[in-house]
Design a protein around this nucleic acid. Structure first.
Lengths: 206, 206
DNA sequence: CAAGCTACGTACCGATCGGTAACATTGTCA
DNA sequence: TGACAATGTTACCGATCGGTACGTAGCTTG
């Protein structure tokens, strides 16, 4: 996958040390994931990342060529987690895509009204980095294009008259929940994302 | 309004110079508005702001106590511009709130698919500053609460059966357009925001 | 054992960050 | 003319930024 992360070195197990604690690169990416998601990428310095990971700075730059590349690795990893959750709720061969999508949205609604909710790490990253050639943004754009296509495909399987319109409507609701979920304190508009989607789906498939 | 900005000093016109060029505080806020919106707040240094404004750093700190306060002033100013646009499309006493809201959304759809679209400066700011007591975030949260209430009020006037649900659905679509409009390159999901809203409104008022 | 390699740490770099102190200049008004 | 408000000028501060040169511990293999 990502050539940025050191994979099997010479032969057999290198096993960093006698203990089986994860290798530096993985600890760094774990640390970056938490800090980037919670505070934003620009708000977190590389010193904080390595301190939180229990490693030192050169270890970071041996596995990642720059902070920008680490941010891109963070986005790619976030995408894996996203699809795990999404596909966990909505199987590719779902018998009832509508019910499964609404399951996902119910879950999103619940998460989005928790106090420390921070929305989608990928959307947030794209907002932090408008430069069109930033590696993290490029990874994020590719992910969002996949999600849009996937929602359109689900709309087809739900029998929508205009699948592009329904897919985009669902995409807007989801992105809206990502954003407003981290702006409102108590239960905000994102708490109604599943209900709004239900209305949209019903109207689009009636 | 904002006590951060120097307002009428002694009496009559102070008029900084013989020329009628805007005062330093206003030039700085103009400069910050453009740079913050286009690049994000954390990405822009105060040196760049003052250079772009044609003033010097001490002038900035005479009118704004910190960069964070300047960011808050930027949000408040952005809010004024937002309501000018919104209320320009949707009068408080609109005869046909549905048509006027769809007008606004048509316009939003058009803007959101332009190449350099950067979404809502206030949403972006809230995403950049998750700290709950940051002055710019506080100003942004207050604005979004007002917008939510306004959309709910419009939903009432449209005769929605469940105005909170319709208002929140519209809010999610709008925030979704803000976000995805700056993620997708060509025409993305945000291009369908007005159509999706039309479907939602029709179903909610049928 | 000694070479060689991998994985890591110590210490440091120049640049930039937000912010300030002290003083000079200009225009307005009384 | 003299006080005042507003801005510019210059130089500086400590902190933090992303990034790196270089040394070293420990395992593996001849």
């Amino acid at each position: 996958m990502s050539s940025t992360i050191a994979d099997k070195p010479g032969r057999s197990r290198p096993a960093a040390s006698a203990d089986d604690r994860p290798r530096a690169a993985e600890r760094i990416l774990n640390s970056a994931r938490d800090l980037f998601y919670r505070q934003g990428i620009r708000a977190v310095g590389v010193d904080e990342i390595v301190a939180n990971a229990g490693v030192t700075k050169p270890s970071l730059y041996r596995s990642f060529s720059s902070k920008d590349e680490l941010a891109a690795a963070y986005v790619r990893r976030y995408e894996v987690e996203f699809w795990a959750r999404f596909n966990g709720a909505i199987g590719e061969d779902a018998a009832d895509p509508k019910a499964q999508l609404l399951d996902y949205l119910d879950n999103l609604a619940l998460r989005s009204i928790t106090p420390d909710y921070r929305g989608c790490g990928i959307s947030n990253t794209a907002i932090e980095y408008p430069e069109p050639d930033h590696p993290a943004r490029l990874a994020g754009e590719s992910h969002k294009a996949k999600l849009r296509a996937r929602l359109q495909q689900i709309a087809v399987r739900m029998g929508a008259r205009d699948p592009e319109l329904l897919g985009d409507g669902l995409m807007l609701l989801i992105e809206g929940a990502f954003a407003s979920g981290q702006i409102f304190h108590g239960p905000g508009p994102s708490g109604n994302v599943a209900r709004a989607a239900r209305v949209l789906i019903a109207a689009a498939t009636a």
